[in-house]
């Protein structure tokens, strides 16, 4: 039952990749920042919705997962470079480890991330899938 309020507050981020952007220097942030590290006090932060498009910056295959993810192993955990700049950590689904390459184009999908046992809430959020599983990516 822990962290329901925290999850609830993060729903816009987790469901829709809602971050922020500094309209002074143009940098975009995910997770959202309230102060622009470039412009400091001169920064002007506003809400920004990421498109959900990106590329695989790096990835690893998890064989010894944490609690709650045991039955998904082996699964792919990637660092996704979003088209708008920020890099985020996310599962890459609907493919096998050998299908993923650094540079593969990905897009966001809506999935169950973890459930708090059989009685708790189900936490949904973004994961990513390959945009074109047959694509041979250009190297970054």
């Amino acid at each position: 039952m822990r962290g329901i309020a925290a999850h609830w507050r993060l729903i816009p981020q987790r469901y829709n990749l809602v971050g922020t952007k500094c309209s002074n220097c143009g940098e975009k942030f995910f997770p959202p920042r309230v102060i622009c590290p470039n412009c400091r006090r001169a920064g002007d932060i506003e809400e920004f919705r990421f498109s959900g498009e990106g590329r695989v910056y790096s990835y690893t295959v998890i064989h010894v997962p944490p609690d709650g993810f045991e039955f998904q192993k082996p699964y792919i955990l990637g660092i996704i470079e979003l088209a708008e700049g920020p890099r985020i950590l996310s599962q890459i689904v609907d493919c096998k480890p050998e299908d993923v390459e650094i540079g593969s184009r990905v897009e966001k999908v809506f999935r169950k991330v973890i459930a708090d046992g059989s009685e708790g809430i189900i936490r949904y959020g973004y994961k990513f899938k390959l945009k074109d599983p047959k694509e041979k990516p250009r190297r970054l």
């Binding site: 039955f71 999908v109 999935r111 169950k112």
Partner: peptide
């Protein structure tokens, strides 16, 4: 459905 798919995730993808 995959382990991380259910009626809610299918509904969201179709709705999007």
């Amino acid at each position: 459905p995959s382990l991380d798919e259910d009626t809610a995730t299918i509904s969201v993808e179709a709705a999007r």
